[in-house]
């Protein structure tokens, strides 16, 4: 069977859940193999094998986790060596851009923001959510090696244990893209809450939370539900929360089981990032707020009154 390359992403040395999702998808298209930019270690190899990677290609001459273009060299070298049926990367700042450059070098079609991939008669059939999530399109790559950037949380991870073969990949020195220097690099501190992309519940706050202290209620409710904190751009602009929890067109796209929008009006750019959620709840004092038009349950009321009361309700009902 033809191999399907999954570009591995690691965080703090741990393989991202999104990478394991790609392995699950790759198994539908051929034989999943993993590509690690940098050296691998036992834990990495083991978790990749646990999720079906028959081989782990390592470009171990590479410094661990270099910025962007060296990863393009690795991906292009791997495609040349393996001649895969497809390449799967995680949609996001890094994965999409590595894929885009590789697509140019390989003159191969690229499909971004995939939410599903299945085997089709003439190559992978890719479902995308387009036009701010209002349409769904099925696309195929018709030239070169199909390169697909898949959104995190699009598929349920399946275990498929195999004993992977680790194979070192020779990466020819690149013609040398004029250098970008990393002058400062700072890892983000973990919040201890589930990753926004992976969370089954997301509680999001907007300008209507009123103040940084008021926004704290969003975190309390998220913790009560074991969920993640999200925000509208207005709330992130006001620095009531970290930039990377912004949901919407220029932030994250999430599709949890439960999305609770608190003091968020529901602008089209915000809805683009959350309207795929299974159940949507809104709390807003304005009965005309557009968020109510897509909410399964809405409460017209003051977040500073309703959320503390809801926290109490959850507590008593659990007791």
């Amino acid at each position: 069977m033809t191999e399907v390359i999954v570009l591995v992403e690691r965080r703090d040395g741990t393989v991202r859940r999104a990478t394991l999702e790609l392995l699950t998808l790759a198994a539908r298209l051929g034989e999943p193999v993993a590509l690690v930019c940098g050296p691998t270690d036992d834990a990495t190899t083991a978790v990749l094998g646990q999720h079906g990677a028959r081989k782990v290609y390592v470009a171990d001459a590479l410094a661990d986790d270099p910025y962007l273009t060296p990863k393009v060299d690795v991906l292009v070298a791997a495609v040349a060596a393996v001649q895969p049926a497809a390449v799967l990367v995680t949609a996001g700042a890094e994965g999409t851009e590595v894929a885009a450059r590789a697509a140019v070098r390989l003159d191969s079609g690229i499909i971004t923001d995939a939410v599903d991939v299945v085997a089709g008669e003439s190559g992978p059939l890719v479902t995308q959510s387009v036009f701010s999530g209002s349409w769904s399109a099925q696309s195929q790559v018709v030239r070169g090696t199909p390169i697909v950037a898949v959104r995190p949380n699009s598929v349920t991870i399946e275990q498929a244990p195999v004993e992977p073969v680790v194979q070192v990949l020779e990466v020819p020195a690149s013609a040398g893209v004029p250098g970008v220097r990393v002058t400062r690099r700072e890892a983000k501190v973990s919040t201890g809450r589930p990753d926004l992309a992976d969370a089954t519940a997301v509680v999001a706050g907007g300008r209507g939370m009123g103040s940084p202290e008021g926004f704290g209620l969003v975190g309390q409710l998220a913790d009560a539900l074991g969920g993640a904190v999200g925000a509208s751009r207005a709330a992130t602009d006001l620095t009531w929360c970290a930039r990377d929890v912004q949901i919407g067109q220029t932030g994250k796209t999430v599709a949890p089981q439960l999305y609770i929008a608190c003091g968020i009006s529901g602008a089209i750019q915000h809805r683009a990032g959350m309207q795929g959620s299974r159940t949507i709840v809104a709390v807003n004092k304005d009965p005309k707020a557009p968020i109510f038009a897509i909410a399964d349950f809405g409460v017209v009321g003051d977040v500073q009154v309703v959320l503390p009361a809801l926290l109490k309700e959850i507590e008593t009902r659990r007791a």
């Binding site: 191969s108 690229i110 349409w135 769904s136 099925q138 030239r143 349950f297 809405g298 017209v300 009154v305």
Partner: peptide, 22 residues
């Protein structure tokens, strides 16, 4: 084009659910 759209469909718009006034 190296990619081709095979089919496309509009998502049924979400229906508004219950709204209660606190």
């Amino acid at each position: 084009a190296a990619t081709a759209v095979r089919s496309a469909s509009i998502h049924p718009p979400r229906q508004a659910g219950t709204v209660v006034v606190d």
